[in-house]
Design a protein around this nucleic acid. Structure first.
Lengths: 336, 336
DNA sequence: TACGGAACTTTGAACGTTCAAGCCCTAAGA
DNA sequence: TCTTAGGGCTTGAACGTTCAAAGTTCCGTA
């Protein structure tokens, strides 16, 4: 049982008052240099740390950032969130914040969790992941003027989509992959993506289309849309390869699809290059060229935006509304 | 800004005192049925939730469980912790606890983080992962009688290894895999594992050895020990296959090794069955037979043990010392 | 009718911190 | 010398909850 060291213990040991100890830590400029040094030394010596609960009671700030954790294991790209989480935890800690997890099945239950958490642990901010069209969560938080960042753009034209966000430029990723294939000599390059309607998916398809269009190459009939998954990727790729004997490469919207596509390519009897998206361990394992997202940077950007919103409401009139769009990088491997 | 509802608001609205509201929630048996119902109804109506910081101040309990999050993305089995985390968050929530994350590079910095957290957020318990021989963390926590569970056995003979833990029976997993191969007709079955010294690795090798010995089959010279990784798995498997023309199957200590082994098998010119460990998305993707760990159950078991230690120090003399050893299951796929 | 006691409820205090206001001392200006 | 200003530090109060102790009500029994 670590004997608790309170601010009073420090005050007594240093021969000053509670408040001076508090000031030495929180408002150094208000304390005489000599006093401050002495107090800090005593703090160090006694191993004092401000009790977070007491501080929260008084200041109303919990220094907690809440984020949802998804099942993860099911999909191949489960580890994407994992890496992001690690980065978030690390950068948040540097800024004096801790990350708290919660689970939720859908937007509705997630909002219910917001209410629950705000009533009990009072997190200072939320990080939203997997943003989508008409995201109820964002509007709910905006309405209540609660601080949050979305990892993922607001995929909606609604004017209330004015909130801080961080995202990776998916279109740039698929465009880079396509360009790489073009540079390697491929001319008929197909795309295996998700059904239209999902912001992320449409974005990734757009990058491919852009690169193709820039070279005045044919795109129509070279695009397929299926739900994510290896099987689906396999089928869609098989279909594409059979339908058009000229296809020599496939850009895929995810590593799952790409894995299926790799398989289809392998049994097609002709060489077909394949690229994926997310640079998951699977991709590394099987030598799949894939688009890598700078997840650590993304997490750091989230923390920065949050810190700005939390510490500097210097100008309460103007909404803190920054956003960051990061560039992915292509990891070239055997597959393409 | 959600107008804060405090216990006093509820008390006033219900026409009772603070304490009665508190009791209605925390010690229902002490409040008259009618009063309790009425109070609970008012609580519901006003949407009251006990402020966690205030509660913590008084009770000294934070309802927080802290766990380390690892980089994850690097290894193939990164998503193992991810899935475990999700389960932990979910079960913990049901028991009224929240999961807080931290990062640490090694045992020393992790212990420093313990100190930091215990001084500020005061988590009620820790969950240790990746336990190993002479785990400083466990002994540090034990010395201070701080509640914790390890996900992973105490791999040490030290008498202070007396703490709650949850683990998956790795030996049973590799044994099941080996038996399955034996049942399929294989007789010379090799093992590709890690260098001796790691508890987990030795355990997994032991399972294979047990199954082989039970049939009086030869084992010597059929075992290889290398660091984890696809390349290493490939090399070790290649070596085994070449060294012994009779080998027709390989049991591996991880999906990474197995993936390498699969590759080696493919280019060996003869059919060699391969099994992995962890049932990662990669395994599913490439049709690798693998040992599946019940991570959700493991997480639930951790929460159970913690809840017992936290809520029922009914018998402070006897250390709460339960442990749970879960059985993995073999996911049979094309590879074996 | 009064009394004992069980059942239920209320009241004061405390957890550790920071805000707001106050006090003390020194130095500068009148 | 007296006043004022302000830097530096201290003190009282409050955040919202639960513990501990004290109070109230009600009922059965003497």
């Amino acid at each position: 049982m670590a004997e608790k060291v309170t601010i009073m213990d420090v005050a007594r040991a240093a021969g000053v008052s509670r408040q001076t100890v508090s000031n030495a830590l929180n408002s150094p400029e208000v304390v005489r240099d000599e006093t401050r040094r002495h107090v800090l030394e005593v703090i160090e010596r006694l191993g004092y740390r401000a009790n977070q609960a007491a501080r929260q009671m008084r200041t109303g700030r919990s220094r907690l950032i809440a984020i949802r954790i998804d099942p993860g294991g099911d999909g191949i790209s489960g580890s994407v969130l994992d890496t992001f989480l690690h980065g978030l935890t690390e950068t948040a800690a540097r800024a004096g914040y801790r990350v708290m997890l919660y689970t939720a099945a859908d937007d509705r239950t997630e909002i219910a969790t917001f209410e629950e958490l705000l009533g009990s642990f009072e997190p200072d901010a939320f990080v939203l992941t997997a943003t989508h069209h008409d995201d109820m969560r964002a509007s709910w938080l905006l309405e209540r003027r609660l601080p949050f960042v979305a990892f993922g753009r607001p995929w909606s034209e609604l004017p209330d989509a004015r909130h801080p966000w961080v995202d990776v430029d998916g279109a740039a990723g698929t465009e880079a992959a396509t360009r790489h294939l073009l540079a390697t000599g491929h001319r008929r390059i197909g795309f295996v993506g998700w059904p239209p309607g999902s912001g992320v998916g449409d974005d990734r398809r757009a990058g491919w289309a852009r690169a193709i269009a820039a070279r005045d190459l044919p795109a129509d009939a070279l695009s397929r849309a299926v739900e994510d998954g290896i099987e689906n990727g396999d089928r869609a790729a098989r279909d594409l390869i059979e339908a058009d004997p000229g296809v020599t490469a496939l850009v895929c919207a995810s590593d799952s699809l790409a894995l299926g596509a790799l398989n289809a390519a392998g049994s097609s009897g002709r060489p077909v290059a394949v690229t994926g998206f997310d640079d998951t361990p699977v991709a590394r394992a099987v030598g799949l060229t894939s688009v890598h997202q700078p997840l650590g940077e993304a997490a750091a950007a989230c923390v920065n935006l949050l810190a700005r919103a939390l510490n500097g409401p210097d100008d309460p009139g103007r909404e803190t509304e920054g956003h960051v769009l990061l560039q992915p990088s292509l990891m070239v491997r055997r597959s393409g």
